Amino acid sequence: MNQIEINNLTKQYKNQVTALTDISFQVESGVFGLLGHNGSGKTTLMKILATIMRPTSGSVRIGGYDINTQGEEARRLIGYLPQELSMYPTLTVFDFVCYMAALKGVKDRKKVMDVLEQVDMGQYAGRRIGQLSGGMKRRVGIAQALAGDPRILIVDEPTAGLDPEERVRFRSVLSRFAKDDKCVLLSTHIVEDVYQLCEKLAVLRKGALFFSGSAEELLSKAAGKVKIVEIEKEKDLAALQKKAVVLSVTYEHSGILARILDERGEFPVPPVAETLEDAYVYCMGGKNYE
């Protein structure tokens, strides 16, 4: 069952800047990844899906409800964590989540404690927001999104700036939520989060949908094309970039090792195993698949 259906979605701002152009894809139950650089249109799309912003044209259905004509019904199904969530630093964790839950009509204080326990913040319920670390604030953010038992969770760059331990903890929370036939739409530019969590994903580039499908399908685009070549001097790197997509560069004592995507088979060295990050960097590199 499709939890989210996006058809021919376009968003143009009043200054004539087009943020999204003719976007169409579907999101089923589980964790779905939305990848793209800053400025690719991810946050605009998240705001439209969360019914905060209206599209210029096209349609979106959340749990079967059209957000343009049935926005109230759609909102009841959604938990939303924006990229920047304003918090009141003098409130305690418990009082803040109680306040956010009340805005959704949830007044049961036990349910607030339940969502805090889900994100491992129960023991900090009495601590003031201003005393929390960045990772703890993100956990409070996901707790308020979980209040009201949503069916669909929309999270925008939830692990940006977090240390590795907090990122692992956050991924665990999202995975646990999605296991009961629910849906998480995870917007991020961190490929590792998508690799660990998502079976399916979409890639936005400059406001357009570049790819939608499974992680395996995206990987297949780079299969047999990833190679490692050695160059002697840094000035040779510019010439290499004209011939291939340079995925990464490692400086060794013996020279410079460049991990490249050889589209035309110009480099007579054996390919190495491709990664999801290789395929994603290729997507962002201005090249087009045939």
Rank of each mutant, 00 (worst) to 15 (best):
F25L: 09
Y88D: 05
G41W: 11
M100D: 05
R128H: 13
Y282F: 14
Y124K: 11
V246H: 03
L103E: 07
I260K: 07
K200F: 04
G126F: 02
K42E: 11
E216I: 02
L81Y: 07
S29F: 01
I52K: 14
L237F: 03
E277P: 07
V140T: 02
L116K: 04
R109G: 01
A202P: 05
V115A: 03
P270G: 00
K287V: 15
L81M: 15
P268F: 02
V17D: 09
I78W: 10
G64D: 10
K287D: 06
G58T: 05
I228H: 00
T51S: 11
E263H: 04
I62C: 03
V226H: 03
G58K: 06
Q196E: 09
A239R: 10
R139S: 06
N7T: 13
N288C: 09
G134E: 02
V173H: 12
V168W: 05
F32R: 11
F267H: 01
N7M: 06
A101F: 00
D149N: 15
G71A: 13
K104P: 03
A202R: 08
P55H: 14
T18P: 02
Y289A: 14
V31T: 13
H37V: 11
L209S: 11
H189W: 10
I62P: 01
L240P: 03
V229M: 05
E232Q: 12
D95Y: 00
Q123A: 12
Q144N: 13
L9E: 07
V106T: 05
Y88E: 08
G39Q: 13
S254L: 07
A50Y: 09
Y251S: 07
G64M: 08
I52G: 10
V245N: 03
S187N: 10
S133L: 03
I52N: 15
A19T: 11
M87H: 09
K221M: 12
G135P: 04
A125C: 07
N38T: 13
A125H: 11
D149L: 14
Y195Q: 14
R76L: 11
R169C: 02
F170M: 15
K111M: 03
P150S: 04
F267W: 08
S187I: 02
F25Q: 10
D278N: 13
L146F: 10
E266Y: 00
A244L: 04
A178D: 08
V60K: 06
K225H: 12
S172P: 01
N8R: 14
S175V: 08
T69C: 08
G285C: 09
T188R: 04
I48Q: 08
V31D: 02
I228N: 00
R139F: 02
Q3V: 00
A145I: 00
Q118S: 10
V269L: 00
Q3T: 09
G36S: 15
I154G: 13
A101K: 02
Q144P: 06
L201H: 02
E28I: 00
I62W: 07
M1C: 06
L257G: 01
V27N: 10
D262Q: 06
A238Y: 07
L20Y: 05
G30N: 09
V173F: 14
G134S: 05
D262N: 05
G148V: 14
E277W: 07
E217A: 14
L240A: 04
V17Q: 12
D156I: 10
R169F: 01
R54N: 15
